[in-house]
Amino acid sequence: MQPFINVDIGGPAQPLLKVNNLVKHFHSGVRKGHRVVQAVDNVSFEVLKGETLGVVGESGCGKSTTARLLMQLLNQDRGELIFDGLDVGSSRLPMKAYRRQVQMVFQDSYASLNPRMTMEESIAFGQRVHGVSAKDAKEYAHYLLAHVGLEPGRFAHRYPHALSGGQRQRVNIARALAMKPRLVILDEAVSALDKSVEAQVLQLLQDLKRTLDLTYVFISHDLHVVRWLSDRILVMYLGEVVEVGPAEKLFTDSAHPYTRALLRSMPSMDPQNRTLVSPLSGDPPSPVSPPSGCRFHTRCAHAKAVCAQTQPRLETVGQGHQSACLMAQPASAWHREIPVQEVNHVA
């Protein structure tokens, strides 16, 4: 079978993917004027080789848009992607070569598959596009089906409607692996599965990561799953990154009020430890007209007047730990503001 040659010039110390100042705004014309939805606004982070980077945040914070920008299903308005030292889309790393090394698994396992193609055909399709012979692509599709726990003799010639949700998601994972990628983006890949199937797919992802030397970007609302699977966690709010750091550090000593509110919203298995008061008041502001300064200040119990005037940047607050909060930065004006002027909370 014709092998794929991956570009790996940077060595183990270099991040696999660097995201620099990524911006994506959606424009829509309406009767009362032109509206701009600031879905992703000046987002920067790194994905290290061999890690799982978890991405969390409320619905509408820009997680899925960021994933589609990483996959280049959407073109950014500004910013750049650097994959292992090479600019994505440049002559040294054209888009076809980049997409061969970066694959994505979507939330809806049924909509992700062509209903007119068998599982064998769906998995082999990518390799056929890249010039692999039909015979070799078919053999590799059977190998991948077995690798994700589906017997090729039983499942290779089935259509999507004949499979359960967990089986379809395993096929989607196999299809993503068919191109022998180095980075796999998982956008709510297990959220539609019941818990028993979800546990099986999560264990499968861990096994594949170890045996195939993969790197994951794992997007999910389920903080329990993110904590179990991730090495580092990136927290987004209203199109911006507000905190990033080691998974256990964020869960035990988070530096941003929004992260702490997310953690307090996690369901508890202890009936004596019920959530009686909402960790956050109000709804997220509109991405069409986000607040000035810190975008979280309208819902933050620690906000002061300076929070509405100064936009915080991601600053180091610990080993490998960054937070975009003036309160977490000892030299910021938040600590010098006297008297304390609390910002009214949004009801």
Score class of each variant (00 low, 15 high):
residue 121 E to S: 11
residue 167 Q to T: 03
residue 153 G to E: 09
residue 42 N to T: 10
residue 36 V to G: 12
residue 51 E to M: 06
residue 264 R to H: 15
residue 135 K to N: 11
residue 14 Q to Y: 10
residue 258 Y to T: 01
residue 324 A to S: 15
residue 107 Q to P: 11
residue 52 T to Y: 08
residue 104 M to S: 09
residue 133 S to Y: 02
residue 164 S to R: 07
residue 336 R to L: 11
residue 191 S to I: 12
residue 259 T to M: 04
residue 338 I to R: 15
residue 59 S to W: 13
residue 88 V to N: 03
residue 327 M to C: 10
residue 125 F to R: 12
residue 45 F to D: 10
residue 211 T to K: 11
residue 319 Q to C: 14
residue 42 N to W: 07
residue 321 H to L: 13
residue 217 V to D: 08
residue 244 V to D: 11
residue 239 G to P: 13
residue 338 I to Q: 14
residue 99 R to Q: 11
residue 197 V to C: 07
residue 147 H to S: 15
residue 149 G to T: 04
residue 340 V to Q: 15
residue 318 G to R: 05
residue 59 S to G: 13
residue 208 L to V: 04
residue 210 R to W: 13
residue 328 A to I: 07
residue 95 M to N: 06
residue 99 R to C: 04
residue 155 F to L: 02
residue 76 Q to W: 03
residue 135 K to L: 13
residue 20 N to W: 08
residue 317 V to M: 10
residue 116 R to N: 07
residue 269 M to Y: 12
residue 248 E to S: 12
residue 221 H to N: 03
residue 131 G to Y: 02
residue 17 L to T: 01
residue 106 F to C: 11
residue 239 G to L: 09
residue 84 D to M: 00
residue 104 M to I: 14
residue 259 T to N: 03
residue 8 D to W: 01
residue 152 P to H: 00
residue 325 C to N: 05
residue 173 I to W: 09
residue 8 D to C: 02
residue 58 E to D: 09
residue 21 N to S: 14
residue 201 V to T: 06
residue 42 N to G: 10
residue 83 F to S: 00
residue 234 L to Q: 08
residue 305 A to D: 14
residue 151 E to Y: 09
residue 161 H to V: 05
residue 224 H to W: 15
residue 72 Q to A: 01
residue 202 L to D: 07
residue 141 A to G: 04
residue 65 T to R: 03
residue 329 Q to D: 15
residue 225 V to M: 10
residue 232 R to W: 01
residue 259 T to E: 06
residue 108 D to N: 12
residue 323 S to L: 09
residue 299 R to W: 01
residue 26 F to M: 03
residue 218 F to M: 08
residue 258 Y to A: 00
residue 316 T to R: 15
residue 21 N to H: 12
residue 118 T to L: 05
residue 5 I to L: 00
residue 23 V to Y: 14
residue 24 K to E: 00
